[in-house]
Design a protein around this nucleic acid. Structure first.
Length: 864
DNA sequence: GCAGATACT
DNA sequence: AAGCAGTATCTGC
């Protein structure tokens, strides 16, 4: 069923929840209507169904609350939020790392594929692996009938009576998985296995080395043995000892345990298409040489996997894990997809990507966002300010990451696990003794698992699901870590007892029990540095050191900056960002240097860059800096002095600032547009859009001069210039595109890479600060942006301080009290969103306590 | 720290 | 004949 109309329909929502209604399944076996009908019939009236309905109502309620909250958002808040969000966006943009090649490998219908491989009778049949009560995988044939993972087998059977359900054989899957992982290790010994059939690799380093490899080192021999299933099975299970002679002679490390069979013809080796011409006609027939590009490497990996296991894999290549994961899904099964490592390509890919495709965004989030009109990642970007007000910080941060196409480049080893658990479903148990002994069993199983990883934890949680599918968890934390079955059970037993007693004399009628342990001892170490952005985005603020390992930026900052000087950071951070933009641009033009470019330590530094670098490393160093307020170069001024200077400049402009003295035609300043709408005090989205362009240009045009922008608007660029100046920022493009859709006021359009800008943005060479309305003495966009940022912050403070209408914003200050700001702008000229704000109130969509005064969006928290 | 919610396979 | 999982993490108090 079309997922676009699932919103207010319980039935559809339920089906969606059951994972059957996604538009992800292309099914010719049965049409969607039919599938949904069958599922409904099979499920309706069951306790399960009732519970699903209940859960769905909760989600709907949540959405309702969110909408309610949304309706109360004032334009000022939205506006402030926009500033904050865009500040972060700018920083994120600046720290964007495109220098990693991450790949995500995903075996196609893994369990099912293994079973089919090993049992010829299963081929060409719809099959699923699992049991009558639950399936873990289905093959593509079965998927056409709507049979999917996480579906109970009995329902699957109704959808597809011919379905063969094979019980899982995990040992075998593990074995096959191991074979695959062994191949992967050749490319990244540090790769991260997500599950038996999925892994991430960072092949950045490998790729570099490979550039110099002779062909022979990249040559693989085609094992044409389309072995019979049994042989294959044997080959897999009992590592065939025979080696391919040719392979040995040329590349001893390869195919060390390939099946020796060389028989008939392979029906369709996908990689065959990429055979390269060989000089040696002898080898031509059965060897293949892969190139040195990432794409070729991945083809090689998939080729090797198929050769070794007779199974196919899909893969994604991208600059970060989040994108790689999405990519691997794109040409599934048995395909691959690459996002080239440049911003434009990333943005282009992200542009129309439905948010649901993004790992971490599940059904619920999708539904909530859909309620806000957000379907694609562009929508996500457009509504970023709103999202920052409606969602928790973690959430909107992750949304922002997603909409900018950012993600982790780090391979997190799974040693970082935070909890371990075990749970089991059974037919109803209600006798206390049975429950206890079951619990004990679980505890000892868990203890075993713990032992395997040598973990000990302090928190024990039990999970109970009653026959109505209602889930309860109860946790208890003890002083010292525990790990043995007895210790865990002692705690779990108590928890269970409380629950049993609570319902007495009615029995607990359970269908599932689980035990979890968390609070591992090593978790202590990294207490504050914990970021909770979903793991895919986790390293968004990570930079690579020259060796390719990851340095946490936060830690870095902490190390590099004494705490007492950290309050001065923001301005310089910004400066640094701007410079980095230039770096990025440079690297864009010089692919050669790209590879070796490392954010934290650029190999070749210009003088300018040097300065910036020193600055980041030592706040006491004196630098040549241009003041973003008066735009006078400050020479080699030390930070203290510069801050003083900026402060002075600021207080001066505060006095000087008289909009009337500056003749700025309304049409030339976007600010006038904002004014117009702010006056109306609309709280609609369109209002948001009104001022988005201003900030967006600000944020996303770093490194481009205003002349560039204007020229761009006026067209007639050589294509080359065009691409380096503008089109790299395709976010801009759909930004304009979208704003034109939603707001007539902005006559902007984008077609075929041509973006015409006809906003009220100044069209001449003059830059007019939209906040203070003063003509600026610079045409350097970076400097200009700094100025605007500072003005914005200044304006907010002013506004609050005087509690009167700000001439620029032309709207009353929000009733938040300014507690902290003295007359003089503090050293915290710019507040960077990166800065941790410990005391902030968190928000949730159901929160009742969104009081303007203690909201995290009050100016105080802004400037904390 | 706890309980419930969400996501992924 | 009836029947819908297991694991980890995140979120909001």
């Amino acid at each position: 069923m079309d997922s676009t109309k699932e919103n207010n329909n319980d039935k559809d929502g339920l089906l969606l929840r059951m994972g059957l209604n996604d538009n992800k399944a292309g099914m010719d076996g049965l049409d969607k209507e039919k599938i949904n009908k069958i599922i409904m019939e099979a499920t309706k009236g069951s306790r399960f169904y009732e519970n699903e309905l209940k859960k769905e109502k909760q989600v709907n309620q949540r959405i309702e609350n969110m909408m309610q909250q949304k309706s109360q958002i004032t334009t000022q808040r939205l506006w402030k939020a926009q500033l904050q969000v865009d500040k972060l966006a700018m920083e994120l943009e600046q720290s964007r790392n495109l220098h990693c090649t991450i790949i995500h490998i995903d075996m196609d219908a893994f369990y099912a594929a293994v079973e089919m491989r090993d049992n010829p009778e299963l081929r060409d049949k719809p099959i699923a692996v699992g049991s009558m009560s639950m399936l873990s995988t289905s093959n593509y044939h079965a998927r056409r009938f709507g049979v999917r993972a996480a579906m109970p087998g009995f329902i699957a059977k109704r959808l597809c009576p011919q379905l063969t359900i094979v019980s899982p054989n995990f040992d075998k899957y593990r074995e096959v998985s191991k074979e695959v992982m062994e191949i992967l290790a050749d490319y990244d010994p540090n790769f991260m296995a997500v599950s038996l059939d999925e892994a991430y690799l960072n092949i950045t380093k490998y790729l570099e080395e490979r550039q110099n490899w002779p062909e022979d080192k990249r040559r693989y021999f085609v094992n044409r043995g389309n072995t019979t299933e049994n042989e294959k099975s044997e080959a897999v299970i009992s590592k065939a000892p025979g080696l391919n002679e040719a392979a040995v002679s040329i590349s001893p490390l390869l195919f060390e345990d390939s099946p020796p069979q060389l028989q008939q013809q392979e029906p369709e080796i996908p990689s065959q298409a990429h055979f390269e011409e060989q000089r040696d006609p002898q080898v031509l027939q059965n060897s293949v040489i892969f190139g040195t590009s990432a794409e070729e490497v991945v083809k090689e990996i998939r080729f090797r996997i198929e050769q070794k296991t007779s199974l196919t894999a899909s893969a994604g290549i991208a600059p970060n894990t989040m994108l790689a994961k999405v990519c691997s899904d794109k040409n599934k099964p048995n395909g691959q997809y690459q996002i080239p490592p440049n911003r434009e390509a990333v943005m282009d890919f992200i542009k129309d990507l439905p948010i649901r495709k993004v790992p971490g965004i599940g059904k619920v989030t999708e539904k909530m966002l859909k309620a806000l009109g957000i379907i694609t990642c562009s929508d996500l970007y457009q509504k970023r300010a709103l999202l920052s007000l409606l969602f928790s910080e973690t959430s909107w941060h992750s949304f922002l990451h997603i909409s900018l196409g950012l993600g982790s480049t780090q391979m997190e080893r799974d040693g970082e696990r935070k909890s371990m658990s075990i749970e089991r479903t059974f037919s109803e148990i209600s006798k206390a003794e049975e429950l206890y002994s079951l619990c004990q069993e679980l505890c000892s199983d868990l203890a075993q698992d713990l032992q395997k990883e040598g973990l000990k934890g302090k928190t024990v949680t039990i999970k109970l699901k009653n026959v109505n599918f209602e889930v309860k968890t109860r946790a208890s934390t003890v002083a010292a870590v525990v790990s043995t079955a007895e210790e865990i059970f002692a705690i779990a037993k108590e928890l269970l007892k409380v629950e049993i007693d609570a319902d007495y004399p009615r029995p607990l009628r359970l269908r599932l029990m689980g035990v979890r342990i968390s609070g591992f001892s090593n978790e202590e170490d990294r207490k504050h540095g914990q970021r909770s952005i979903i793991s895919f985005l986790k390293a968004g603020s990570h930079v690579l050191d020259p060796v390719g390992s990851v340095v946490d930026k936060n830690d870095q900052d902490q190390v590099m900056k004494p705490p007492e000087t950290s309050h001065k950071e923001s301005f310089f951070t910004k400066k640094r960002s701007e410079m980095s933009w230039n770096h990025q641009d440079n690297f864009k033009c010089e692919p050669e240097t790209k590879q070796s470019f490392q954010v934290s330590q650029p190999p070749s530094l210009s003088k300018e860059e040097m300065k910036e670098n020193l600055e980041t490393e030592n706040t006491d160093d004196c630098q040549v800096i241009t003041c973003p307020i008066c735009f006078k170069e400050q020479g080699r001024i030390c930070l203290e002095a510069l801050n003083r200077h900026v402060d002075e400049c600021l207080s001066r402009t505060l006095v000087d600032c008289d909009p009337k003295t500056v003749a700025v035609p309304q049409s030339q300043s976007f600010c006038s547009e904002v004014n117009l709408d702010l006056k109306t005090h609309k709280t609609t989205d369109s209002l948001l859009i009104d001022f988005v362009p201003s900030v967006s240009v600000d944020v996303f045009s770093k490194g481009k001069s205003m002349e560039d922008l204007n020229t761009r608007a006026g067209d007639e660029q050589s294509p080359k210039q065009y691409s380096s100046l503008w089109s790299k920022s395709s976010l801009d493009e759909y930004f304009y595109q979208n704003s034109s859709q939603e707001n007539e006021g902005y006559d902007a359009k984008s077609s075929g890479g041509q973006t015409t800008l006809q906003t009220s943005f100044p069209r001449d060479e003059t830059l007019v600060c939209p906040v203070c309305n003063l003509q600026q003495k610079t045409s350097d966009l970076m400097l200009f942006n700094s100025h605007v940022d500072i003005c914005l912050n200044k304006g907010l403070i002013q506004e609050l301080k005087k509690d009167k209408v700000n001439p620029v914003m032309n709207c009353p200050a929000e009733n938040s009290k300014s507690t902290g700001s003295s007359g003089k702008i503090q050293k915290t000229v710019n507040v960077t969103a990166k800065t941790k704000r410990p005391g902030l109130m968190t928000q949730n969509s159901t929160s009742k306590k969104i009081k303007p005064n203690n909201s995290k969006y009050t100016i105080d928290s802004f400037f904390k």
